[in-house]
Design a protein around this nucleic acid. Structure first.
Length: 301
DNA sequence: AACCAGGACACAA
DNA sequence: TTGTGTCATGGT
């Protein structure tokens, strides 16, 4: 079946450090979401981003980018939650139109047009980013894969496909020993993951309910969890709970911000927060993701 | 072989 | 409030 949408860059979205369970295989993208194995692909060749004559993000070209969806059950349609997960309802032209008119951001948007923010499951997102601290993205993927294979439920896959597993529930990880978690190569993060899983399993916080709260309150509650600072809290708010103004600042984004907006100076923490909260507008999180991805892909070239 | 990684935390000043 | 050492492990 096919999801009809516009301006979607699957590679930038699924492998850009928001989610850690997608991998490219035979020209498509395969992953497990909500305990369902999925394969996604562009049903027509997307080509690269196609800058319009003006070359500005406000006037960036809009293109049809239908997404072919394959599930384990060939007779079933696309899961009803998939469009929401993929952020299909976000209008990129409208989003980027709210950005400040600075050339650095325009360049980043043009370089990865079609990059979108996902709406992941909050627990998987939180757990994954608990594992992300001081780790490279390739390593985070590996740890998450190991964790799922050892403690996740097996899921249905296409015929002949190697086995896949759901992301383990908080209840399941809460029942693990720290030693079992450390055996997944997560190092000192095991203590945080275990303590947070136990806090959620005990019902001390309902992640889903945070959607309805003001941003600052939701962030404050997340930061009460062991191992969750502002950066990880903002990742959960932005990548799973739909707070498009949340602005996680990691080493890549910090480097980009310093270079583009602070003349290579190192801003004071409070000054940096104020800047990220005011300069980029209501979709600051989108601006952040473009800056992040642009910084990464230009670094690798 | 050093250096660094989508950080958080305890602690000092 | 802002800076420093520490944490465990592996990529580049």
């Amino acid at each position: 079946m096919t999801l009809f949408t516009r301006d979607y860059d699957l590679a930038a979205t699924l492998s850009g450090g928001q989610a850690f369970r997608w991998r490219e295989r035979d020209g498509g993208w395969e992953g497990v979401v909500r305990g369902h194995w999925l394969r996604l692909g562009l049903s027509t060749p997307a080509g690269g981003p196609e800058p319009d004559a003006q070359g500005g993000c406000r006037l960036a070209s809009s293109r049809e980018t239908p997404i072919a969806v394959t599930t384990a059950d060939e007779r079933a349609g696309a899961p009803p939650w998939l469009a929401d997960y993929l952020g299909l309802d976000d209008d990129l032209s409208a989003v980027t139109a709210t950005f400040p008119d600075d050339s650095a951001l325009r360049r980043a948007v043009r370089a990865c047009w079609g990059l979108r923010l996902l709406r992941q499951e909050p627990w998987e997102c939180l757990a994954s980013f608990l594992l992300s601290s001081n780790k490279q993205i390739v390593q985070i993927r590996q740890i998450v894969a190991t964790l799922a294979a050892r403690f996740g439920q097996p899921v249905r896959v296409a015929r002949g496909h190697p086995p896949e597993f759901a992301f383990p529930t908080a209840d399941r990880l809460a029942a693990c020993t720290e030693t079992e978690l450390r055996a997944c190569q997560m190092g000192f993060r095991a203590r945080y993951l275990l303590a947070t899983a136990q806090a959620l399993a005990a019902g001390r916080l309902d992640l889903e309910r945070l959607r309805d709260w003001p941003l600052d309150d939701a962030r404050r509650r997340l930061m009460e969890l062991p191992g969750v600072g502002r950066k990880i809290a903002d990742c959960v708010l932005l990548f799973s709970l739909g707070f498009r103004q949340a602005f996680p600042v990691d080493v890549w984004v910090l480097k980009a911000l310093r270079r583009l907006y602070f003349a290579n100076r190192c801003p004071a923490p409070r000054e940096l927060i104020r800047f990220t909260e005011t300069h980029f507008g209501p979709f600051a999180g989108y601006a952040q993701q473009y800056l992040f991805h642009h910084a990464r892909i230009t670094q690798l070239d």
